[in-house]
Computed example of a mutant assay.
Amino acid sequence: MEITLILLIVAAVSVGALMKSVFGFGEAIVSMPLLALLPIPLQTSVSLIGLAGLTVALLTVFSGWRHIERPVLIRLAVSTVIGIPAGLALLHLAPAIVITTGLGIFLIAFGGYSLFKKNLSRAIQRPLLNNPGWVLPFGFASGVLGSAYNFNGVPVVVYGTLRRWNPDRFRGTLQAHFLISGVFVVIGHALGGLWTSDAFLYYAYSLPAILAATALGVFLNKRIPAHNFERYLFVVIILLGMVLVFPKS
């Protein structure tokens, strides 16, 4: 196994862990396209990021526990579990080029949404989706995207924005959802045959970097103007999506 490949994998995973610990979400959005550019199977990348995301969630969930919106979290957990098998089926049945292209399109769409969501939030003067049932399709989408791409947090980010959660409720509920859904997603990966010896080996190599990146992210979260850094980061996400949609021949 080449040391260069291992270092690149560790770097991709640690950048994602830093993203999640600073902003509360997004490690797969950063790490998955970077890993897709490396010569490792997609299934290995998915299971690796699943393990890494669960690790970060375990390390960060307790700081926002008292701000969790528990009724929403319960509905999210139930509907997420229902969506996990659909995501696993998508991962096994769809050709790799379809998955990576779909991943790139999704990154471009999500990055564009994230860049303009502040204008959207200002335009919305009251919370939307007040009916408790609205959380169910977002939870289902979280299960599908989580088991297929490890993007289980993205639908919850959209839902929380439309509900106009305050920052503490947003971060606390999101981290708790990551912890619960992350456990189910990792179990789904195991039952779906995605776990490989390479994934665990890469995870073992990456663990010290994950711990360091999480500690650094918690430190930075309290000391940097996150809105500026976030804007630049979402531009990078869009560019990474373009790389996946328009790969070099």
Rank of each mutant, 00 (worst) to 15 (best):
K117P: 04
K118D: 12
K118F: 09
K118P: 06
K118R: 12
N119M: 10
N119G: 15
N119C: 08
N119W: 14
N119Y: 14
N119F: 10
L120F: 12
S121E: 15
S121D: 13
S121F: 12
S121L: 15
R122E: 10
R122C: 07
R122G: 05
A123R: 15
A123E: 07
A123D: 08
I124R: 13
I124M: 15
Q125C: 04
P127A: 10
L128Q: 07
L129E: 05
L129P: 05
L129A: 09
L129W: 06
N130S: 09
N130Q: 10
N131H: 15
N131P: 06
N131E: 11
N131D: 15
P132Y: 08
P132S: 09
G133I: 11
G133Q: 09
G133C: 08
G133F: 13
W134D: 08
W134K: 10
V135N: 02
V135F: 05
V135T: 12
V135S: 05
L136N: 03
L136E: 03
L136G: 03
L136R: 04
L136H: 06
L136Q: 01
P137Y: 04
F138Q: 02
F138G: 02
F138W: 08
F140K: 03
F140W: 09
A141L: 11
A141F: 04
A141H: 07
A141M: 11
S142M: 01
S142G: 05
S142D: 00
S142Q: 01
V144R: 04
L145I: 06
L145G: 04
L145A: 07
L145K: 04
G146N: 07
G146W: 05
S147F: 09
A148K: 08
A148C: 14
A148F: 08
A148M: 14
A148L: 11
Y149N: 12
Y149K: 06
N150M: 08
N150H: 13
N150V: 11
N150Q: 15
F151S: 02
N152F: 13
N152E: 10
G153L: 01
G153F: 01
G153A: 10
G153P: 02
G153Y: 02
G153H: 00
V154E: 00
V154H: 00
V154F: 00
V154A: 12
V154Q: 00
V154K: 00
P155F: 03
P155K: 03
V156E: 01
V157T: 08
